[in-house]
């Protein structure tokens, strides 16, 4: 059903070109009207997104404190970013967060969506809304709440003590070994609801006859989940991955409001340093360079996700073609 997308450019354009060319005048006017409709949004997007991004790129080549005249330093800021060992460590933490902010939520979301679509639950809408709730809460509120949950006298430790595992109790976000995964799990909790809702919508779009066919072929719940539901959800999984990966890599508020990068440097992420460079050191050039570098890393990771998604897609397509 999506084979046309994979055709090469020349194959695509030739047969689809309309027989009679549209008069140029009319076409120009129609384009103009289209842009007029877009204009309010475009202006907004330009002023608040495009211009600041371009300014950041510009400032990243300067030594600039936000007040005095900036001086051109070429790639010095980028050299400083690349040679700062703290930033490499922070990037490492970000990649650990990919597991917690992206991989785990997608897996949990798939599991929950699979369950919800198969089992008839009374009050399903209410459950769905509840599970989606973390996504709409302010992350500052979430961070403060989790700080209480992870507290040395918080519910997790109380529970551990109650069942005789008091030795495991610790200040979860104040302990060098547990801080990073603990902060990561907050991200899992925020993101799985979004993934679940995306996947539920995707499942609703799968042809019911496919399930019938699968069941006639003798597929059980597990087989049906892995052979039909998951492959059919590929586009939704890619979207969920892109959203959660970006969230993981630019994550600042959760880390800042739970640990500030501590204890020691065990939960630092690049965006914590962007904040410190810009607002504490007033080294706006360096902050911009780091932000741009982070954007490039994010785009690269998202690119890999897209590539992986597409590769599997074409394999599936080939199989489908062979079968027909």
């Amino acid at each position: 059903m999506t084979t046309d997308v994979r055709l090469s450019g020349s194959e695509r354009v030739t047969p689809l070109r309309p027989a009679a060319p549209v008069p140029p005048k009319r076409r120009a006017r129609r384009d103009w009207i289209g842009y007029a409709y877009l204009a309010p949004a475009l202006v907004f997007y330009g002023v608040f997104v495009v211009v600041p991004i371009l300014q950041s790129i510009q400032i990243s080549f300067y030594d600039y404190n936000g007040l005095s005249v900036a001086s051109w330093v070429g790639l010095d800021n980028y050299a400083a970013v690349l040679s700062d060992g703290r930033l490499l460590e922070a990037l490492g933490h970000s990649f650990v967060f990919l597991l917690f902010y992206s991989v785990l939520p997608v897996m949990l979301g798939l599991l929950l969506a699979g369950l919800m679509s198969r089992i008839r639950i009374y009050g399903l809408t209410a459950f769905r809304a509840l599970l989606f709730l973390p996504q709409i809460l302010s992350t500052v509120v979430v961070a403060v709440a989790w700080r209480g949950i992870y507290d040395i006298d918080g519910p997790i430790n109380e529970f551990l003590r109650a069942i005789g595992l008091g030795d495991l109790a610790r200040a979860w976000i104040g302990d060098f070994d547990s801080a990073l995964p603990s902060v990561g799990l907050v991200g899992t909790w925020i993101e799985y609801g979004l993934c679940m809702v995306l996947f539920l919508a995707g499942i609703a779009a799968i042809d019911r006859e496919m399930y019938e066919a699968a069941r006639l072929d003798g597929a059980g719940a597990v087989r049906e989940f892995f052979s039909l539901t998951v492959p059919s959800l590929r586009p939704q999984i890619v979207v969920a991955m892109i959203l959660t990966v970006t969230f993981a890599l630019r994550n600042f508020d959760i880390v800042w409001n739970t640990t500030r990068g501590g204890p020691g440097t065990s939960t630092t992420v690049p965006s914590v340093f962007v904040y410190q460079f810009a607002f504490q050191s007033r080294d706006i050039g360096l902050a911009s360079a780091l932000a741009i570098a982070l954007t490039v890393v994010t785009l690269a990771v998202v690119g890999v996700v897209l590539l992986l998604g597409r590769e599997r897609d074409s394999k599936g397509g080939r199989r489908a073609r062979r079968a027909s």
Binding site: L54, I57, Q58, Y62, Y64, G66, V69, A70, W72
Partner: peptide
């Protein structure tokens, strides 16, 4: 345009001090 803009004027030249 971006390339021109990058090399044109340095940011922060309108200081009020």
């Amino acid at each position: 345009a971006l390339a021109v803009g990058l090399t044109a004027c340095a940011p922060g030249s309108n200081s009020a001090g």
